[in-house]
Amino acid sequence: MKLPNSLKTDRVTRYKWIAIIIVLIALIVLPLCIESNYIKHLLIMACIGAILGMTFSLLFSSGLITLGAAAFYAVGAYSSTVLVMNAGLSFWAALPLTLVFTAILALGFGAVFVRNAGVAFVIITLIFAQVVVLAAAQADFLGGWGGIMGIPRPNPVGTVNFAAKTDYYYLILAMLLLVVLIYNALYSSRIGRAWRAIKLSPKLAGTLGINEYRYRLLAFVIGSTTAALAGCFYAHYSQNITPGAFGGWLSIYVQLYAVLGGLEFYILGPAIGAVVMTFVPEYLRIVKEWEPIITGVILLVVILFFPGGILGTLKNPPALSLNKFHSLYNRLVTGKKRDSNS
């Protein structure tokens, strides 16, 4: 979410709270209105996607572009599976252990990764995501390329025994809301301000006493642990995991959620992006052959003409299309790019 504007009036804040409560109620009531298990499945996947997208935005808020969300998603899934199936722990005990394990892992690798600037960081996280997938595929006790099947459901809590998709939905919803709360608290504190400072101008942030490395490492660890949280859920929801499910494409899709929703909106953006990217392709059952081209074209159209994403474009509607044609004509005729940028 954007940093609180110092000029917000009480009325706006009140409207915001009303909207939040309405949305919350809607989210809670939603599964009761839906019959189709398939749609519930999509909802759940959208929630997972939203969480992963938010981890991307968390790192992006400090200027880091990561392609490693899939890596820690996988780590979470596999760790939880091993703890439950091999060590006999209950899902609820395995969960915090997985998070701690991932945090330590993220701290160790992050300490190395964050030392590398911009482009190098993108590449290294991409490579790391591949490493995780390959490691899982090579390790026999992790099931190799075939993966692990028959992962048990989370242990029953009271009357909830996770036989129905609705139970899973409430679990992931709870996780999502927890993530939203934590991230919002971070963004509105001086930690979030430090991240923003580092993102906007690392040079200036340094002269203000902000340790760029430490804050970025913090973002990396928090983001990675959050991704592992989603991974834990995923393993016990789909009840089987394969290395292929965590491949490089996943990280790119996670980025896409954030970009599509709106990069400036660290929480709402990925949520909206995930929902759109999960549901829309299902309703546009295009010929399988053309799907990557359509996705690519949509991606290009969004980036080139609506770089603010859905929320960004709603907030700042673009100038009239006349502008676009004028610059196009300009370029065609004079062959020169209208300057003022980079």
Binding site: R190, R193, A194, R196, A197, A205, L208, G209, I210
Partner: peptide, 8 residues
């Protein structure tokens, strides 16, 4: 406001 970072 961001500049006040170091004095908390």
């Amino acid at each position: 406001f961001s500049g006040l970072h170091r004095h908390y």
